[in-house]
Design a protein around this nucleic acid. Sequence first.
DNA 1: GCTGAAATTAAGACATA
DNA 2: TATGTCTTAATTTCAGC
Lengths: 171, 171
Amino acid sequence: MDKDRPNESWDIAQVPDLDRIDVGILRLLQNNARLSVKEIAAEIGLAPSTTHERVRRMRETGILWGTHVEVNPKALGIGLEALLMIELSKHNRGIVDQFLDDIVSVPEVRSAFLVSGRYDLVVHVVVHDTQHLKDLALDQFTIRPGVTRIETSIIFDARRRYELPVFRSLR
Amino acid sequence: MDKDRPNESWDIAQVPDLDRIDVGILRLLQNNARLSVKEIAAEIGLAPSTTHERVRRMRETGILWGTHVEVNPKALGIGLEALLMIELSKHNRGIVDQFLDDIVSVPEVRSAFLVSGRYDLVVHVVVHDTQHLKDLALDQFTIRPGVTRIETSIIFDARRRYELPVFRSLR
DNA sequence: GCTGAAATTAAGACATA
DNA sequence: TATGTCTTAATTTCAGC
């Protein structure tokens, strides 16, 4: 769903073929991007060079995008996370796109979703404490033109999965 | 915010010291976990072995967690993402924790947040199409005991940042 | 805590089947 | 498309500053 990525939108007929081995490789790498080709090969029962070629191909065709390390938020002084549920007054395309682009440059913003339903935007932010959250909401969101209402939901607990499921037929 | 990680919750006095160089390394690795130590060293102007030692230390102390590759959702047949806003009837701790643990084992769930405010849970799901989304909502969420209401927000567009900001003093 | 060099291991290219 | 070999490049360790 992010912008500016290679091969983000394939024609449905152009989506590269994948088989069960490819999916196995993807599963391993989504959970640990630092696995060596040798380790992956041993896990899935293929020769390292073959495994290497498959990984290379998936990178080239845009199935595999970037890799990211996870950093412990507490180590950076992040003590609180929240979801900001935002209602906009105007749904003009240009305004909404600009809004998305603007807020993603705010350091506290981790992700921003343009959605259907009661709200128009859901924004995941990370902050130091409640004071910081209040200042952020007021200075960066309430103040923006087009914003009619913000509801702040503090995140008490979270769970994440790093492995995407497969909803297509495999070769 | 995730469970079962090393050093997830440091005492505020025990948070490891970081300096600007460490933060620079973290910034680079959050955007590209495949950077070689040599490349990082060149970028920040340090010797590779020193850089390596800093990375090793941050891994050991739990500042750096895992690494993950990003996979193009379209390559796996994922055509639609949504946020499910869920209201629960009972706020008994055990029930809520169990609920979180249960839904994170549903393949379509990417992340689940326990939050304050109008809803109790916000769940990010990935599906093939709208039919799939309907089935998922009914079969996996509406059906669960304790769920009183679900609002489905389809995600039209999204932006993400992979770099966490720093809200603490540095050595 | 930083450096530079040495040893170990991995990545990436290629010829072959 | 899979494999084994080979070359290049990286990681990781360590003695010295």
